[in-house]
């Protein structure tokens, strides 16, 4: 808990620290850490019910495209919220069809869902097709730090949701659902409702993160916004950091995203080989993620 608050405080103070020449770079990395950690937390929220989502890249993309299409008409904040809502509604649609499926079967359904959405983004006439979609800068570009603090806002929301779920009866219901649906049912857990609510909240946050991401990159194309690579990142970060927790995805996001950026800077070409190697070692030697190093017990 203290570590979670400490990391959040660090993010809040980062723009005010004397970083010298590195300031722009550090803040950029900080931004991506926030957005991807929020995405990872939103994936973990769904994973806590035992469902492996490969649709988080698509939720992220939907939020981003929602912002790209709506921000010119409605302005930054309404567009962000509506983009997130769009992601949430699409998740309810996916959930209505697929939530009775378990584990791997749900994963396949969510993968198909994300491919469908990417194809839609490619083919729909108003979505810009393969060329892509420009996104207006946050708040009219008046304040350069706006994306950074929007990212912090999304991360705060993701952390708050995760802590709320972890602490209360909802977290117990999630844990029971994950470990055995039949037992959860006979103990009075409304399993479908728990899974649907987790998926809805998880996709909402992922959509919000995508929207903020769009406002930073200022340009979207279907291959990046709906990429499977991002869906994979959404699950690699929590696995690396420690599943079913708040600190795990947060810590995993900080380390993995910074590591990726640093390697890109140092090694440049081929940095992904080193990055991949580190991931393999982590999976082999840290089966419980970074939290395992801290001696945490996870169920």
């Amino acid at each position: 808990m203290r570590a979670v608050l400490g990391l959040l405080l660090l993010f809040a103070l980062l723009p005010f620290l004397p970083l010298g020449d590195w300031r722009a770079f550090v803040l950029d990395v900080g931004f991506f850490v926030q957005v991807l950690a929020a995405l990872a937390l939103s994936w973990d929220l769904v994973a806590r019910t035992g469902q492996l989502s490969l649709a988080h890249g698509a939720f992220f993309g939907l939020g981003a495209y929602g912002v790209g299409l709506l921000a010119p008409e409605l302005g930054t904040l309404p567009a962000l919220l509506l983009g997130a809502l769009l992601a949430g509604l699409s998740a309810l649609l996916l959930g209505a069809v697929a939530l009775r499926l378990h584990g791997l079967y749900f994963a396949i359904a969510s993968l198909a869902f994300s491919e469908v959405l990417r194809t839609l983004a490619l083919k729909l006439p108003f979505a810009g097709g393969p060329i892509g979609l420009p996104v207006p800068p946050a708040l009219g570009g008046a304040w350069p730090l706006a994306p950074y603090f929007l990212g912090l806002g999304v991360l705060l929301l993701a952390v708050a949701l995760s802590l709320w779920a972890e602490r209360g009866a909802f977290g117990l219901a999630q844990a029971a659902t994950r470990q055995s649906e039949a037992v959860a049912r006979v103990l009075g857990v409304r399993v479908v409702r728990v899974k649907l609510l987790s998926l809805f909240l998880g996709s909402l946050t992922a959509g919000l993160a995508g929207g903020v991401y769009g406002m930073k990159t200022l340009f979207l194309n279907p291959y990046d916004a709906f990429s499977l690579a991002r869906a994979v990142e959404a699950l690699v970060i929590p696995i690396f950091g420690g599943l079913y927790s708040t600190l795990g995805p947060l810590l995993g996001g900080v380390l993995l995203v910074s590591l990726e950026q640093a390697l890109r800077l140092w090694i440049q070409e081929g940095y992904l080989v080193v990055y991949g190697g580190i991931l393999v070692l982590a999976i082999l030697f840290l089966p419980k993620g970074l939290l395992g190093l801290l001696g945490g017990r996870r169920g």
Binding site: A169, L172, A173, A175, A176, L187, G188, V189, R297, R298, G299
Partner: peptide, 15 residues
């Protein structure tokens, strides 16, 4: 991976 008491708590939490 839950303690005895946590397992029991799960039995009460929703009923």
């Amino acid at each position: 991976l839950m303690t005895v008491e946590e397992n029991l708590r799960l039995g009460a939490a929703f009923l």
